[in-house]
């Protein structure tokens, strides 16, 4: 039986489509730049002038113009949307909360991890492995998923999260460390003495 070798297809790292479809995506300009950098042959093949005129083949010029105008509009829209989303992401923050369980024991609750766009369960598992403690994903009052880690590991957890953030280029996301029970208790004590 003769084996047929699989065809290897290059995919655009930006929009994940084969490069020839980049022009229909939402990030055409970035795709183009990426292709030029990484595969110049194909770039020239796709975007040289001679080829562009070829593509017009079956559609009338008017139609083609309309098509490209529509696409451009859409691309601009999508880009604005993506930018907004990124800004929103950078605005959000991750909260590491240290909750007192009894006098010497603590639980760490991490909320706001959605920005990472990673499987929370997987992150949870890495935490559990790293600290050799129990770790769960739980829904909080707002209906978002929190990671709960048994043990007082907030500093270490912060380091790991920072690493993950830099990997994804979200360095600017703030991480806040909160000590939950103690503050409340102090406040309660203060109000009582007053």
């Amino acid at each position: 039986m003769a084996e047929v070798a699989p065809k290897s297809v290059l995919y655009c790292k930006i929009c994940s489509w084969p490069p020839e479809y980049c022009e229909f995506g939402s990030s055409f300009k970035r795709c183009q730049a990426w292709l030029q950098e990484n595969n110049e042959d194909l770039y020239n093949q796709l975007y040289s002038n001679a080829n562009l005129s070829n593509q017009l083949s079956s559609l009338s010029i008017e139609k083609e113009a309309k098509l490209s105008a529509d696409l451009e509009k859409k691309q601009a829209k999508e880009e604005a949307k993506a930018e907004k989303e990124l800004a929103k992401k950078l605005m959000s923050k991750i909260t590491i909360k240290r909750i007192e369980r009894n006098k010497r024991k603590h639980i760490i609750s991490i909320s706001g991890m959605e920005v990472l766009e990673m499987d929370l369960k997987k992150i949870c598992k890495t935490f559990a492995n790293k600290f050799a403690t129990g770790s769960t994903v739980q829904k909080n009052a707002e209906g978002k998923n929190d990671i709960l880690i048994q043990g007082d590991v907030s500093d270490e957890a912060k380091e790991i999260i920072e690493k993950l953030l830099t990997e994804q280029g979200l360095k600017d996301v703030k991480i806040e460390q909160v000590d939950d029970k103690k503050i409340k208790k102090k406040q309660a004590a203060q109000t009582q003495t007053k």
Binding site: Y21, F24, S58, L67
Partner: peptide
């Protein structure tokens, strides 16, 4: 499909 349809298919 023809070129005009790509957009909609995608």
């Amino acid at each position: 499909v023809d070129r005009g349809a790509i957009k909609f298919v995608l």
